[in-house]
């Protein structure tokens, strides 16, 4: 894919804090029009990457382009077309939700002051905050704050939205709304990069996935491409373990192992029907036969590690 088709592209993007690399040479490729799920466990470097994309921090090494423009040189022209949410909401506590949006709108030299009111109301409406718009921000609940931050990213028409954990703190209803919001933004033609540590939250809306683990981009591609990386295993229950193992190996099944009263193996491209037919043909009694195709979730856990502790 040529760089011109990429809404976000990075090359060898690296950020070190002290000696530790928070982001280690990642090559992000977010195609224009994609909904890109940027996944990774806590501390894997998602927010750090997003901060570099938006020009908030300078990479230690590597380069990045946003909407075809190198950052941070192109920030003045590019960022007005980018709506963003970085590491949660942040607003002035003693201003109302509406006044906070008005302040951000006032800061935008591309924003037309005459339409500010209607644009702010439309943004509030879109995140379901219109009724609470007059409340002081400090009186907002976590979910309301999150909604306001998403609303702020929608004040102007955008070509790209960079949303760092937009569903954090939202109730299930709110989570669904954000998902449908992301869908509708994409339908309008915007590219969306949405980070999350929950695959299930973004899986349904994403066309592409990128998986971070400990500062590395361990997988990237369309959802189908990622899924094809899932390796199925077969589990066979039989009385004749040795004979079964021989038949399986003969068929080309790899990693054949006896596990208790079962034989396990990796079938690769072999169809299950052929395997069972071959077993029966060789006179091996088949009591049970299961093909385990790991879910995307399992795959995600495999890629990012099982442990609970963050790497640090």
């Amino acid at each position: 894919m040529s760089p011109a088709d990429l809404a976000v592209a990075t090359s060898g993007l690296t950020k070190r804090f002290g000696t530790r690399a928070a982001v280690d040479g990642i090559d992000l490729a977010v195609p224009t029009g994609a909904v890109y799920g940027f996944l990774g466990p806590n501390g894997s470097g998602k927010t750090t990457t997003i901060r570099m994309l938006l020009g908030l921090i300078e990479p230690t090494a590597g380069s990045r382009t946003l909407l075809g423009q190198p950052m941070p040189a192109g920030a003045g022209e590019t960022l007005p077309r980018v709506g963003s949410l970085v590491e949660g909401p942040a607003f002035h506590p003693y201003l109302s939700g509406r006044a906070n949006l008005a302040r951000l709108d006032a800061a935008d030299r591309y924003a037309d002051p005459w339409s500010a009111r209607s644009r702010i109301d439309a943004a509030l409406e879109r995140v379901g905050l219109l009724a609470a718009a007059g409340k002081k921000y400090r009186a907002y609940s976590l979910g309301m704050r999150q909604r306001l931050a998403i609303g702020a990213s929608l004040l102007m028409p955008r070509d790209l939205l960079v949303l760092d954990e937009p569903t954090n703190g939202l109730d299930p209803q709110g989570t669904r709304e954000v998902r449908s919001l992301v869908g509708s933004l994409a339908a309008d033609g915007a590219t969306v990069l949405v980070s999350s540590h929950l695959l299930t939250e973004v899986e349904q809306v994403c066309t592409h996935l990128g998986v971070m683990s400990d500062g590395h981009l361990v997988a990237q591609g369309t959802v189908a491409e990622i899924r094809s990386g899932a390796v199925a295993t077969i589990r066979l229950q039989t009385g004749e373990l040795d004979a079964a193992a021989t038949v399986l190996t003969g068929l080309g099944v790899t990693n054949v192992q006896r596990v208790g009263l079962e034989v396990h193996g990796l079938p690769g491209d072999l169809e299950p029907e052929r395997i069972v037919a071959a077993l029966v043909g060789a006179g091996v009694g088949v009591r049970g036969f299961v093909v385990d195709a790991p879910s995307l979730e399992d795959l995600f856990v495999t890629m990012t590690g099982e442990g609970f502790d963050v790497s640090g």
Partner: peptide, 9 residues
């Protein structure tokens, strides 16, 4: 001024 369009390109 027309109603501002939001979130579109």
């Amino acid at each position: 001024v027309e109603q501002g369009e939001v979130g579109t390109r």
